[in-house]
C-alpha cells in the first residue's frame, strides 16, 4: 500500500496544468480529490510518475446557476454538491445521488470532475449525468470542446477525453422533473450492486419525458432509451413500468463479482429500476 515514487506538480491555472500534461504525456495524470487515483497508486495498479494536483486552480471550482443552466466546476466536491441549496432547488437529484456515494470523509475530498472523468463503472455520477443529459467541457492544447455525457464513456476507464485534456466543467439544465436515484450496495462505502437514476416529467396524467440511466451494470454507465420510450405516453402504470424494466434490462450486461452472480444482479437491477421509476413518477 505504498505508492511508487512520483513528481508532484501544483499549478495555479489551467494553462500550467496543460503544459505539464503536454510535457510528460502519459507519464502524467491530474489529481482531483484523489479518492480513486491514490488507492490505485497505492495498490501499484496506476503508475503515475508525474502527478498534477488541480486543487489550486480557482477556475475549476464553484457551482453557478444561470437561468436554467447549471454549471459545476470540475473540482467541486461531492460534499459541496450536497450542501448547496441553490443546486438542490435547481436539480434535487444531485443531492440525493451524492449522499449515496461512499461516506462523508470521501465526499469531502472526492470531486464531481474526478468522479465523471475516472471512467470506473462503479462511479455513480456518470449515469446520473447521462440521465440529466449533461455536457462535459474538455480543455486541451488544441482548445476547448464539449462532449455529451451520453457519448463520453467507451469502456471501463476509457473515455472520450484525450489523455492531455482536462475536464473543466459540467453543464446541464435545471429540472423540475420527478426524480429518484435508487442504489443497492452491500454497506456504506461500497459501489453499487445496482443503481438507477430516473427523471420523469408529466403532461396531464401521462408521462411526458423520461430518462433512465444505470450504474455498475455494464462496463460503462447505461442510458436506456428503450426504457424511456416504454414510459412516455403511458400513465406509468404497472404494465408500463414492467415494460420499461424489461427494456432497461435488455440494455445492461452486468458481470459477476463479490457482490453476486449475474442472475442476482439482473434481478436486483429490475427491482431497483422499477423502484426508481415508481418513485420518480410519484414526484413528477
Amino acid at each position: 500500500m505504498i505508492p511508487a515514487a512520483f513528481e508532484y506538480h501544483r499549478p495555479s491555472d489551467i494553462a500550467g496544468a496543460l503544459s505539464v500534461l503536454a510535457e510528460h504525456g502519459d507519464e502524467a495524470r491530474v489529481l482531483a480529490g484523489g479518492h480513486s487515483l491514490i488507492p490505485m497508486m497505492k495498490l501499484r495498479m496506476a503508475d503515475v510518475p508525474h502527478l498534477i494536483d488541480l486543487q489550486d486552480i480557482a477556475d475549476l471550482k464553484g457551482i453557478t446557476i444561470d437561468g436554467d443552466t447549471v454549471t459545476l466546476g470540475a473540482m467541486t466536491t461531492q460534499h459541496e454538491l450536497i450542501a448547496d441549496e441553490a443546486l438542490f432547488a435547481a436539480c434535487p437529484i444531485i443531492r440525493e445521488a451524492a449522499l449515496q456515494i461512499a461516506d462523508p470523509q470521501v465526499r469531502y475530498m472526492g470531486t464531481i470532475g474526478g468522479n465523471v472523468a475516472n471512467g470506473d463503472p462503479g462511479n455513480d455520477m456518470p449515469g446520473l449525468m447521462q440521465c440529466l443529459d449533461a455536457r462535459f467541457t474538455l480543455v486541451g492544447a488544441d482548445g476547448t470542446r464539449s462532449v455529451a455525457a451520453r457519448d463520453f464513456y467507451e469502456s471501463a476507464y476509457m473515455t472520450e477525453r484525450d489523455d492531455e485534456e482536462i475536464l473543466t466543467q459540467i453543464t446541464f439544465s435545471a429540472t423540475g422533473a420527478g426524480y429518484a436515484y435508487e442504489k443497492q450496495k452491500r454497506k456504506i462505502g461500497d459501489y453499487a450492486t445496482a443503481a438507477c437514476a430516473a427523471l420523469i416529467t408529466k403532461d396531464g396524467d401521462k408521462v411526458a419525458t423520461a430518462a433512465i440511466a444505470m450504474t455498475n451494470l455494464s462496463d460503462i454507465p447505461v442510458l436506456s432509451e428503450a426504457a424511456a420510450a416504454a414510459l412516455v405516453g403511458t400513465s406509468c402504470d404497472a404494465d408500463a413500468v414492467k415494460a420499461a424494466v424489461a427494456a432497461a434490462l435488455e440494455d445492461i450486461d452486468p458481470t459477476e463479482d463479490n457482490r453476486g452472480p449475474v442472475a442476482f444482479k439482473m434481478h436486483v437491477a429490475g427491482i431497483i429500476i422499477s423502484r426508481a421509476i415508481t418513485r420518480a413518477w410519484s414526484g413528477a
Binding site: Q184, R186, T193, R259, G260, P261, A263, F264, H267, V268
Partner: peptide
C-alpha cells in the same frame, strides 16, 4: 450477504 439471502428466496 444480499446475494445469498436472495438465493435462499430464489
Amino acid at each position: 450477504d444480499h446475494w445469498r439471502i436472495w438465493k435462499t428466496a430464489n
